[in-house]
Amino acid sequence: MTDPRFEFVNIDLAASEHIAAPQYSYWKSVFRKFFSSKVAIAMLVIMAFVVIMSIVHPFISGYSNLAMDDINNPSARFLSISLEHPFGTDDVGRDMFAACWAGTRTSLFVAVIATIITNVIGTVVGMFWGFSKKLDVFMIEVYNIVANIPFTLVAMVLMFALGQGVPQLIFALSCTSWVATAYFIRVQVMIIRDREYNMASKCLGTPTFRIITHNIFPYLISVIMTGVSRDIPSFISYEVFLSYIGVGLSEKDISLGRLIENGSAYMTSAPHLFVIPVFISALISVSLYIVGQTLADASDPRTHMI
């Protein structure tokens, strides 16, 4: 070792621990994956526009469904699309542009809150359901009861009993739907709870609660995201339907469903009253759905491999 061409280097303990792999950050990968889809970006822009408009515009316009200032002014009714009224006016002279955004806000609010309730309760119950045999015996019977009844029937009868209104509607929509989510999560948990890494974790003495929160929950994120992206459009759809048949929201609340209901009477004489709310509801549903689905795909770590 006297060869001058060689020299000693210091032993770097930290360097030997270093794994020669590219830097991996979960959320960075999720976003990279998400923004690689052009359709998703377009839909995200549409979604962001609709959401921001529905939040901001009602504050500017101060829209109230009960304020019918032009009700005695025939010249203000059924105006077609113009610069002053971008979406025209309705049968009592209210500005449809303001009404649409206020309605979108209510519909989105109902759908988002119902989705959050459904998925939070569904996921928590589902994860424990997948682990506990005792809970399983009980919950499977609850599921059998709930799954056998058409959801539309449940929602309609609940609205009938509780009366019209936003809190009632949210309750009616999320009252039984969490059971289906919980069942879905239970099946997923049952599939992965006996995988090798969970067995190993169990052998090493990890408590069940920690296995659920640290080993299984991250795995479920993409599954939950898929559920969320399906729930929001379907709840908007139910809100629209329930309001359309007249059991959803009362006269003081405006929503997309109520706008469609009002507009359907003038389908031939003033089609914009009907077509615009239908179009907006389709637009937010489709954009939310596609953004959600892409996000669900992107949040699955298995798709992050290059």
């Binding site: 759809s237 509801s281 689905q293």
Partner: peptide, 14 residues
């Protein structure tokens, strides 16, 4: 499939 799931059924029917 995605279109029919996402668009409100009321809109589809109309």
């Amino acid at each position: 499939i995605n279109l029919l799931i996402a668009v409100p059924s009321l809109a589809v029917i109309f």
